[in-house]
Design a binder for these strands. Structure first.
Lengths: 130, 130
DNA sequence: GTCCTGACGTTACACATGTAGCGTCAGGGT
DNA sequence: ACCCTGACGCTACATGTGTAACGTCAGGAC
């Protein structure tokens, strides 16, 4: 519970990586690269650099499995998205109060249950993240 | 209607400027600077630089009024926000279809009418902005 | 034992962004 | 006529981001 994954705002490229982790779980750099959408057109080295930077920022974790480096998202999808949504709403839309997430029903990366959880979080912790 | 204000995604700092324009209308660099929230702590020169970069990107317009440079938002609040929301939703949340904006009712920078318009736009043009 | 291959770490480089200073020129005050 | 002030244009510089190559080392192929 003492996860102090405080801020760390993922960039666009980083979001792609996170989505891949959320969708298919932890992976080695090579596996991750292979599962990233081909449209990105990244070179393998690009994938690795992005990954390494994310590790530096604490966005992904890394553990050695039989000597192979395996990465994974450091923070859960819902938690991170809650923060990002709050940020966006506040800062771009000027919305302050708790906002209904009813809007995101069509999400391809969130299940019904996750949306419910997301809603709960957005309603909840509005006064802690620095 | 041939406004081709295509993309141009405003950064955080740029959003501050746009919000100021939307809230109080066109202004000279000095006026704009004075009306920006003091919490930003920008130096006047910073305001001017941001403004100039925005002009380069086509985010703001500039006209000389009696020799004084007066700037203004190039694109309407609703239009720009519609694009930003679509972007965010798609890219961060993986939402594709038309999304209900019902969520943004608490916005301090959007009126009821504007939210309605926003909703219309989000529903509408989903296939043009390259 | 030698060599190839793939994983790793390190470094590079261009452009965006946040933040700000310097030099110049014109108009108004005295 | 001269100087001050403010507006403008340019330049600067650190950090973030997108994108990628180079060099090294270990384990398996032969």
């Amino acid at each position: 519970m003492a996860v102090k994954t405080r801020d760390a705002r993922p960039s666009d490229a980083e979001m792609e990586v996170l989505k891949a982790f959320w969708a298919h779980g932890d992976a080695s750099a090579r596996e991750l690269h292979d599962r990233l959408p081909a449209e990105l057109g990244w070179a393998y080295s690009t994938t690795r650099t992005v990954l390494e930077r994310m590790r530096a920022k604490g966005l992904v974790t890394r553990k050695a499995v039989h000597g192979l480096a395996v990465y994974g998202a450091a923070e859960g999808k819902v938690g991170l998205l809650a923060r990002m949504i709050r940020d966006f709403s506040h800062h771009v839309l000027g919305v302050d109060g708790p906002l209904p997430v009813s809007a995101f029903t069509g999400s391809t990366i969130l299940s019904k249950a996750e949306i419910a959880e997301l809603e709960a979080r957005l309603k909840d912790d509005a006064e802690d993240g620095r």
